[in-house]
Design a binder for these strands. Structure first.
Lengths: 336, 336
DNA sequence: CGATTGCGCGAAACCGCTTTCACGAAAAGG
DNA sequence: CCTTTTCGTGAAAGCGGTTTCGCGCAATCG
């Protein structure tokens, strides 16, 4: 199909022009210490002169290392439309590239432990896999058993020792809630995300903790559950307005729900932030485009991706790795 | 590193259990017609029995086909945070996977014609490349010359015969502008995107065309330029309000600028849609979260990705391909 | 100073699949 | 019935690196 205009250089040529054996070329190109400096120099010179680039497939075949890291999004397409994941991915990609690794993107529900993706991952086609939005971890366990380096983005449900990276949801929610109190709110409600997700649960925990520290007890009436969507935020806020009289502050577990809540408040004839103050989570575009602009908990999403990639690379090097939790930060705008 | 618990099956074993030669196994597995049905059956049975999966690297080395398609985003990380590109990518990924191809993601500025990415692409590491957000096409031309199948997402600047896919920007802008007139607007302005981009120019053209069809001539005062950002939309709208008295409708070339414009209108003490009607482009999340909810031109972004992948696959098959322009559609909400 | 150790290096096997080549058998032609 | 094609097939030569193995040589030891 693709005819190569410039027939790429091979070890054979490098070996010849450098006056060494192919074995030595390989040693130099793979950073083997035990090569005489002179030869190393000769090889490097030949490499540069010939504009040599290693042939991945050949290298992979011989060494078993493909130089490919899969980024697996265990969901259908829609999830990837969330800028969050795209941003994480770009962070991953950058770090991987710097380390001579390529990012293989797989957006697909991981139905079964032996679906096509599973086979792909277990078939040694990649050197490691980074998971987003993991639903069940049966597959992961299998992969782990095969010594496939794994990193999970987001806190996994099971208490297993999977390497993972995540934002400090608890801390962010805690800070947000505290900020609402410090701004004079007395009755602070929360709109939770899907409680089955670890992030949803952690944000609720952070809220509860901050509430207790303020010396009060959060009434059940102040807690309304959503599912991360704008519409669910609007509905949850409507319920709060009805049940929790005197509510004057709301921590929404993500920006989309916060915007929904703002709509509900407006519909009820109240004003943000005068009557009710609002904080979101994620500091996404919608936080910035909302009017009034939404105070939100920012996570450094690119850094999250970078951390994931770094954890992967550490594993590839055979190092032991610890989960990494990234700090979050409150960005104060006009809704508080 | 990764010790394989189950040492994968090879052609040798399949050949033995099927009672044929490795060559025949290869033929069957690659869809060669000239194999006796009996042997084909035997091979397929053996494959299933042994749970065989082809070893990509080996296959790639021998055949020169890697099964990898690069998705190259010629920009820094930030661009990928735009849900637009992520969504396109997910569409691409889905179609590629269905065709046994994998998506290799490369997010990086394509500085030069012989940067690392360029070499990577020219080095036969991938079977094809799909480009986003292409800045200059020197590299593309080179790749094309090497017979590397290429697809560009978005309309390329040069009139070259690159296969590309795009949304009908002209048509969308045209429909949006017409809609504003039909809603009773008399003085319809436009906030353009970056005019140097083909999309920016096409949207302006569509606006002009619709204006002329309405029997009027668009005054220069009604045209303000932005750069796709919310802030630029706000500034552009402020200028329009100042210069173009009587303006009662605005087509913003994307949603972000539309939202910025709405903010400016509100700041000026006017109301949307009563005083000024607004239409955006993209139908992104912000269009849905804006209050009032923004009327916008929707493009089927996933389909755009799918079309890109299909064009790639067609080229891989050696077929001639035509550019593909996808229809856009007006989604009417509360701002018109 | 002979024996042992260790270092640097090349020969060659190998990774798993693809593809060319040539050969025997069956089909077609005379 | 014999020759010429056609068809199906296996043997074997790669594809381009990596890695094991063992050899010569110099440094170290007793």
């Amino acid at each position: 199909m693709a005819s190569k205009s410039a027939p790429r250089a091979t070890y054979a040529e490098i070996a010849k022009t450098a006056g060494v054996s192919e074995a030595t070329v390989s040693r130099v190109l793979n950073g083997d210490e035990n090569v005489h400096p002179d030869r190393t120099k000769a090889v490097n010179a030949a490499v540069k002169k010939l504009g040599y680039k290693k042939h991945r497939a050949a290298s992979a075949l011989a060494s078993g290392r493909t130089g490919l890291i899969a980024v697996v999004i265990d969901d259908d397409l829609s999830i990837f439309a969330d800028p969050f994941w795209a941003t994480v991915t770009s962070g991953i990609s950058r770090v991987l590239m710097e380390n001579e690794l390529q990012t293989l993107l797989m957006v697909t529900p991981l139905e079964s432990v032996d679906g096509p993706v599973a086979h792909y991952l277990m078939g040694g086609e990649v050197d490691g896999a980074i998971f987003f939005q993991l639903h069940k971890d049966a597959l992961i366990k299998r992969l782990r058993k095969q010594n496939l380096p794994i990193v999970i983005t987001g806190t996994p449900h099971s208490r297993s020792d999977f390497p993972f990276v995540d934002t400090d949801s608890f801390g962010g929610a805690h800070a947000a809630t505290k900020h609402l109190f410090s701004r004079g709110c007395r009755q602070v409600g929360i709109i939770t995300g899907d409680i089955d997700t670890t992030a949803g649960a952690a944000r609720l925990d952070g809220y509860n903790q901050a509430y207790r520290e303020s010396g009060h007890v959060p009434s059940k009436k102040l807690i309304a559950s959503g599912d991360w969507s704008m519409e669910s935020g609007r509905a949850a806020m409507a319920r709060l307005l009805e049940k929790a009289e005197g509510i004057d502050g709301v921590f929404a577990s993500n920006d989309l729900m916060a915007v929904g809540a703002m709509a509900a408040i407006e519909e009820a004839g109240l004003r943000v932030p005068e009557d009710i103050k609002i904080i979101g989570f994620d500091d996404s575009v919608v936080a910035q485009t909302a009017r009034p602009a939404l105070t939100s908990v920012r996570q450094d999403i690119v850094a999250l991706g970078e951390a994931a990639a770094e954890l992967m690379i550490a594993q590839l090097r055979g190092e032991e790795v610890q989960p990494r939790i990234l700090k979050s930060e409150l960005v104060i705008r006009e809704t508080t």
